[in-house]
Nucleic acid binder design. Structure first.
Lengths: 154, 154
DNA sequence: AGCATTTGTTAGTTATGTCTAACAATGTTA
DNA sequence: TAACATTGTTAGACATAACTAACAAATGCT
């Protein structure tokens, strides 16, 4: 799988910028400084300086007043983060039954720090729970019952 | 429960120091600068300056060249972090079957960023899995089978 | 007691990553 | 096209949290 190559010389902040750029590109076709600024809730000069850093690291293409694009490498990193985010988000909402906003917020933090291995296991765990065979009541259903009543369903 | 009072005006770094002090106190009776330094893998001047900050915030008691103690407030914060750590660690090792070192490392990161709500749900989830009624094979066993064989046990 | 070692502190540097204020380029529109 | 608004950049400040080098206190040993 070789995901190691993609990992952890990037700070959480850098990862957030890459993720934002990738998401804006999908939504709007182009990423602009103002939009990244809005999405990440930082001021524009922070974006400019982050872009400089990411350019130096060959993760984005950007020249003064110009459009912003991810390099192939940047895109790989962004996709990896988005993937981590989605796995965690699913785990929190679908398995732990956590409300959307909290799940989002937690995924946004944890995606930057969780190890590849744990993420893979989380993914497998979701698969496992969803793959529950027809005869049995889904674990998630049982868990939700347990959450409400404090004991196993009959 | 009022755990909110205890949360998130403390940086990850501060939380690490408080945790280390609490743990050393339990192991050794006294926390010393050199030991905190070793445990957190930072140099001693970093510890000194962190202690100054924590003193200002009334989380530790410390005077020059003297012993280091947690205040009541500091102790509460430390206990909360240790509790988060333990819950996450159990989840990773017992539920996801992740190896000790990775589980530890991930818990150490995630304990600083996970929300109270998600942590509570993780705890409940562990309870739920362990509380599996006598008749049924434990979920964790089934999951481990699934991990190895890629499909549900018969 | 006196010297050496260990432990702790101070001062000052560095790296991130944010911010504000001021300026510059771009775009819009009358 | 000139004026204005929006967008982006630069310069410089600030906070956090680490570091090294140099010094000071405490401890241990003979």
């Amino acid at each position: 799988m070789l995901k190691q190559q993609v990992e952890r010389q990037n700070t959480p902040s850098m990862e957030d910028y890459l993720k934002a750029i990738a998401m804006l590109r999908n939504e709007n076709k182009v990423a602009r400084v103002s939009q990244i600024s809005q999405k990440l809730k930082v001021k524009m000069p922070s974006v400019t300086s982050a872009l400089k850093k990411l350019s130096d690291k060959k993760l984005v293409l950007h020249q003064k007043y110009g459009y912003i694009e991810l390099t192939t490498r940047g895109d790989k990193v962004a996709k990896d983060i988005i993937h981590r985010h989605e796995a965690l988000n699913r785990f929190f909402t679908e398995i732990l039954d956590i409300e959307k906003e909290t799940a989002e917020a937690d995924a946004c933090k944890i995606e930057h720090v969780i190890s590849q291995l744990s993420l893979e296991r989380v993914t497998k765990f979701i698969e496992f729970i969803e793959a529950c065979p027809p005869g049995e009541t889904k674990f998630s259903k049982k868990y939700k019952y347990y959450l409400e009543h404090g004991e196993y369903p009959e």
